[in-house]
């Protein structure tokens, strides 16, 4: 089922260097997922890491307002996103939107911090219970 959401026209102040943006649109249907993330790294670095990330989908890049980093938006078919699950293992779900979100979060973390957060391999009382 197609779901089209139209936002009201956004008027932008003259002194913002992005200029007027026009009507905002967000389009997502059952076959397509669209997710985004803001990454606090230079644009060239984000573009380069995206190109080797292996995350399926079509990406667009923009500078976030207020010097907040790079806005990376990805649109992909649901089928494409199921393969994203294999990129990062057990935390992914079968929901294609969630898989894409998780993949983008990992990309962001690696770019901003040099690593992806993990607790895999940490101790717990479950190992104690299982001997």
């Amino acid at each position: 089922m197609n779901t089209v959401i139209l936002a009201t026209r956004i008027s932008v102040s003259q002194h913002m260097n992005t200029g007027p943006r026009g009507t905002a649109q967000f389009h997502e249907d059952g076959d397509t997922v669209r997710r985004s993330v803001t990454i606090r790294r230079p644009l060239v670095e984000v573009e380069q890491q995206w190109s080797v990330s292996g995350i399926p989908g079509k990406a667009t890049f923009a500078q976030a307002a207020g010097d907040r980093g790079v806005e990376l938006r990805v649109e992909a078919s649901a089928d494409e996103q199921k393969s994203a699950k294999e990129l990062f293992g057990s935390y992914a779900s079968d929901n294609p939107g969630e898989s894409l979100s998780a993949a983008l979060r990992q990309l962001k973390s690696r770019l901003e911090t040099g690593e992806a957060p993990t607790t895999l391999g940490q101790p717990s009382g479950r190992e104690s219970a299982n001997g």
């Binding site: 935390y91 969630e98 979100s101 979060r105 973390s109 901003e112 957060p117």
Partner: peptide, 8 residues
Amino acid sequence: DNSNPNAA
């Protein structure tokens, strides 16, 4: 943004 591996 980056410390929670279970952010989902």
